[in-house]
Write a protein that binds this DNA or RNA. Structure first.
Lengths: 327, 327
DNA sequence: TCGTTTTTGTTAAACGTTTACTTTATAAGT
DNA sequence: ACTTATAAAGTAAACGTTTAACAAAAACGA
C-alpha cells in the first residue's frame, strides 16, 4: 500500500499539516522537525497523491495543446518546443490532435476545460471565435497560436506573413515574372487569408490583373500540392507562390516528375514552416516562420496568464524571414 | 460559480447519488427521474469536476508517452497514432520529451507515476531496465515501444530489424558490392544492436571480414550522418547501410554535395522510419518500419493492461518491409 | 392477507490533501 | 513576576465526487 501523508506524520511524530508544509514550503518549519519529516518521507518512499492535491487546490499543472495536425512537422515542432518550455515552469502537456476536424476540436476543448488542464494553447481550425467561445469558460487561460479566429480578443502569438508574401511576390514581378501562380491553403484560416492578401496586393500594386486560373485552392496536404502544381503548369505559369510547406513538397515532386527545374524553368516561393534539408540546395525561395520562437512565447504566455489572471491580453506578432537564396 | 452535483440534485429534487448514477450509468434510474436530472444538468450547464472524480476513483484517463525525440518524425508519427487510438478508448495523452537524456526520462517517469497517468508508453533511452525499474511502481501499466531495455519483461511492441538488415546487406554482397559501410545509431539502444548484428552476420556469412574503418558510430542526428558519410566516402565505400532516417538525410546531403549519385556511384540502404517524399525517386533502398501500426498496438495494449491488470505480459514483434526499388 | 422480492431512491462515509484557525511554548518587555 | 509578542506546530474543516449500506414503495406469490 502506498504511503499517505498520515503515515509520514505518524512516523515523524508530527501533524499532517507540518508534513504538508515541509513538502510545499508553505510555512516555516524548524530545522529539527523538517529533518524528521524528510527522513520519514524517504523511509516510506512517500510522494503526495497528485489527484488529491489537484482536487484540493484546483491546480493540475497540465496545459492542453490543441493542434490541427501533429503529423505536420510544423505543429510537431511547436509541440516539442511547448513541452520544453512548459517543463521549465513545472507544467506538463496534454495533446489533442484535431485533424482539422470541428467536432474533434470541440470535444478536446470540452474535455480540457472540464478539469483536465489549467490552460490551453490552441491552433484552431475554426474561422470564427464565436464557434469555440461557448466551450471556453470565461477567464479560462487560452493562448491562440499561429491562427487567429476572427473576433478573438485575448492572448495570441502568431506570425504576420502579409508583408513578406507581398514582398516576395513583388520581387518576382520586379524580375519580370508575370504569370505567377498561387497555391492557397485552407481558406478559412487567418494565416491563409493574410497570404492571399499579400499575393493579391503585390499584383495589384504592379497593375497586374488577378487571373483566377492561376489561383489554386489546396487543402494543406501533399497530394493537393501535387495536383495544384500540375494545373498551374498546364496553365503556363512561370512562377508560383505556395502557401504551406507540406503542399510545397507535393508541388515540387510534380515539378521534378516533369523535369522542370526550379530557378531555371520556374521560380518557386514557398512558406517554410520548418527546416528542410533537401530543398535547400534547390533554388526555392522561402518565407520562414519562426515556429520555435512562437511556441516558446505561447507557452510562456499561458503560464503567465495562469499565474497572473488579471494580466491584460497580449497579442504577440512575429515576423518571418525571407530566404531568397533558398539557404 | 460553477455548478456542483449538489446543485443539480437540489434542482432536480433528488439525491446526489441519483445524479451521479445518471451521469455514470452505474445503476438503473427510472425514466422519469432521469429526465428531471438531465434537465437540471442542462439548465445549470453542469459538468462533473474531473479532479474530484479522479481523486475519488483513482482513474485519471491519462496515458503518458515518454519519447526520446519528438522532433524526430518517427516519434512524432507514433505520437499522432497513439493519440488517435487512445482517444477512441476515452484516454488522453501526456507527452514527455526526454531528448535522449537520462535525467529527463527519470523525472518524467517519476512525475507520470506519481498520480498523473494511468499508464505509460515509453521508448526508453536506457540500455538496461534495472535503471528505470525503481521509478516504475510494481504493476504500473507500462508498454515499451520501439526499444527494449535489456532485462525488461512485460508488455512491449517493437520491430525486429535483424533479418531485414541482414537480408539487405546480403543482397548488396550478392550484387558484388564488397566495401559496404555502416553508419550506426546510438549504440546502447536495442534497435541499434539488432541492426549491428544484421550487418555483421551478413558479412560473416559471406566470409567478408569486418573492416572497422567502414563502421561509423553516429548519434542519430542529421549532422553526424553527414560527417560519417564523408569519412566513409574517403574510406572508399561503394555501398552503405544507414541505421536511421535522420542520419540518412544528412548522409545523402553529403553525397549530393560531392556529386555522388545514389544507385550509380554508390548504393544506399537506409532504415526508413516514415514516408519521405523526395528520396523516393532516388535509388535508395529502404527498410521501412511500420511505425503507425506499432503505435496503435502499443496504445491498445496499455489500455488493455489498465482495464485488465492480471493479463499476462505480451511482447509484440512486427516485421519491417524492404523496399529495393526505393518506392 | 402477509411475507418476499424487485425497483427506485437516500444517507453518509470515504478518498488524501491544503489551509484557516487555534494552541502551546518560548522569548521579550516592563 | 506578569503581561505581551513571537515562533512553531497542531486541529479540523473543507474540496466534490463515488459508492456501500440502507430504506421505502411497489409488485408478486402463496
Amino acid at each position: 500500500m502506498k504511503a499517505k501523508i498520515t503515515d509520514v506524520a505518524k512516523m515523524a511524530g508530527v501533524s499532517i499539516a507540518t508534513v504538508s508544509h515541509v513538502i510545499n514550503g508553505t510555512r516555516y518549519v524548524s530545522d529539527n522537525t523538517r529533518k524528521k519529516v524528510e527522513k520519514a518521507i524517504r523511509a516510506l518512499d512517500y510522494s503526495p497523491n497528485i489527484s488529491a492535491r489537484s482536487f484540493k487546490t484546483g491546480r493540475r499543472n497540465l496545459i492542453g495543446y490543441v493542434a490541427p495536425d501533429i503529423g505536420n512537422r510544423f505543429f510537431a515542432l511547436i509541440l516539442e518546443e511547448i513541452e520544453d518550455t512548459l517543463s521549465l515552469h513545472g507544467y506538463n502537456l496534454v495533446v489533442v490532435n484535431t485533424r482539422e476536424d470541428y467536432d474533434r476540436e470541440i470535444a478536446g476543448l470540452k474535455l480540457l476545460t472540464s478539469g483536465i488542464a489549467d490552460g490551453i494553447i490552441i491552433a484552431s481550425t475554426f474561422q470564427n471565435y464565436t464557434e469555440i467561445q461557448p466551450y471556453l469558460p470565461e477567464d479560462f487561460p487560452v493562448v491562440q497560436i499561429d491562427r487567429l479566429p476572427a473576433g478573438y480578443v485575448g492572448d495570441s502569438v502568431r506570425v504576420s506573413t502579409f508583408a513578406a508574401v507581398k514582398a516576395a511576390v513583388a520581387d518576382l514581378i520586379a524580375e519580370g515574372y508575370t504569370r505567377i501562380g498561387y497555391i492557397a491553403s485552407i481558406s478559412r484560416l487567418s494565416s491563409t487569408v493574410e497570404r492571399d492578401q499579400g499575393y493579391r496586393r503585390a499584383l495589384e500594386e504592379a497593375g497586374i490583373p488577378l487571373d483566377p486560373a492561376l489561383v489554386m485552392q489546396g487543402d494543406a496536404r501533399s497530394r493537393s500540392g501535387y495536383d495544384c502544381m500540375k494545373k498551374l503548369v498546364d496553365a503556363g505559369v512561370n512562377a508560383v507562390f505556395i502557401s504551406n510547406s507540406v503542399m510545397a513538397g507535393g508541388a515540387m515532386s510534380y515539378l521534378d516528375n516533369c523535369g522542370l527545374q526550379i530557378g531555371r524553368d520556374i521560380q518557386v516561393v514557398s512558406m517554410r514552416d520548418y527546416e528542410w534539408h533537401r530543398f535547400q540546395k534547390e533554388a526555392v525561395r522561402t518565407i520562414e516562420q519562426p515556429a520555435k520562437e512562437m511556441a516558446r512565447l505561447a507557452a510562456q504566455q499561458v503560464v503567465e496568464r495562469i499565474e497572473n489572471p488579471q494580466l491584460p491580453g497580449r497579442e504577440t506578432i512575429l515576423r518571418p524571414t525571407y530566404h531568397k537564396a533558398g539557404a
